[in-house]
């Protein structure tokens, strides 16, 4: 599967049900919305009623949480069929999921469990990514996850692992800068080292989000405003890069929509001027 570059479409928001009606009523200045793919693995009702209207007005991208691409269990083709059906209906500009495993056999953790950074895991992921992309007939973007542990077995850093996987498969990443910050704090590395190691052509999208800081460690909750550290990381990273699709992601403790818009506008304001030139080709 050849990975053609994804179009630059600007600054987006995660589309969540509590904002459906306000979005339709106010048509906010958002360049695109990202949906959680699995929320639309249903036949009808409110989710589709609203999405069908919103997708008439905004570009949509799809972000999954349950593919479990790193699992050593057989690939779940029922899941991929559901995903395909949803892709056909939504017609997203791109799709993404997480570089992790979440299920094994019949058990589903509903969590984004980290992979060990080993040659074995690299080969396993490369093989599975090819199968999935061939089945879906489109590239799959992978997001880095937050982690709270380091495996004894790991042979390289997370950023080396991502770079190696990109070299092997030409895959692209959704870099969640909050997740990088969370992992950096939990594992005591410099987040800039991670960000600097990922080549521009390997990045399709950025997530900006919040977390909960417990002092001794940080938990990636995506239910808080984006903190100053993450804003600074984004600002400094953006200075060194060409335009990358950037999104504010909030998954819980939903604030008034205006607060998310304020975060989106802040991201626009601190990104380089070149990032405001949209190319909707």
């Amino acid at each position: 599967m050849s990975n053609t570059p994804h179009p630059y479409i600007g600054f987006g928001l995660g589309l969540r049900t509590c904002y459906f009606e306000e979005i339709l009523a106010t048509q906010p200045n958002v360049d695109w919305f990202e949906i959680i793919s699995e929320n639309y693995f249903v036949d009808g009702g409110k989710p589709w009623h609203f999405l069908d209207q919103i997708k008439e007005q905004y570009p949509i991208v799809m972000h999954g949480v349950s593919m479990s691409i790193g699992s050593t269990s057989d690939i779940n083709f029922d899941y991929l069929d559901n995903l395909k059906k949803t892709i056909d209906r939504v017609q997203p500009l791109w799709i993404s999921d997480h570089l992790c495993f979440s299920s094994l056999g019949d058990f589903n953790s509903h969590d984004l469990l980290p992979m060990p950074y080993t040659e074995e895991a690299l080969n396993h992921l490369a093989q599975r990514l090819n199968i999935v992309q061939d089945y879906l007939q489109r590239p799959l973007i992978l997001e880095n996850v937050s982690s709270y542990l380091t495996y004894q077995a790991s042979q390289m850093s997370e950023w080396e692992f991502l770079s190696e996987l990109h070299s092997k498969t030409d895959c692209r990443y959704l870099l969640d800068i909050n997740n990088i910050y969370v992992s950096a704090r939990n594992h005591e590395f410099e987040p800039e080292t991670f960000l600097d190691a990922i080549p521009q052509k390997a990045i399709a999208q950025i997530h900006l989000a919040g977390h909960s800081d417990f002092g001794s460690h940080i938990i990636d909750t995506h239910d808080q405003p984006i903190c100053d550290h993450v804003w600074r990381l984004f600002e400094n990273f953006a200075k060194t890069r060409g335009p990358i699709n950037t999104m504010i992601e909030r998954d819980d403790n939903f604030p008034p929509f205006s607060e998310l818009m304020a975060e989106l506008d802040h991201a626009r304001a601190i990104a380089p001027a070149t990032w405001s030139t949209h190319d909707f080709a």
Binding site: Y148, L149, T150, Y151, Q152, E188, H217, I219
Partner: peptide, 17 residues
């Protein structure tokens, strides 16, 4: 499977999950 790191003990790191 969890490497020793400063800060939290392996059991605490597992407990987060």
């Amino acid at each position: 499977h969890i490497a020793a790191q400063s800060g939290l003990a392996p059991s605490q790191r597992a407990e987060i999950y």
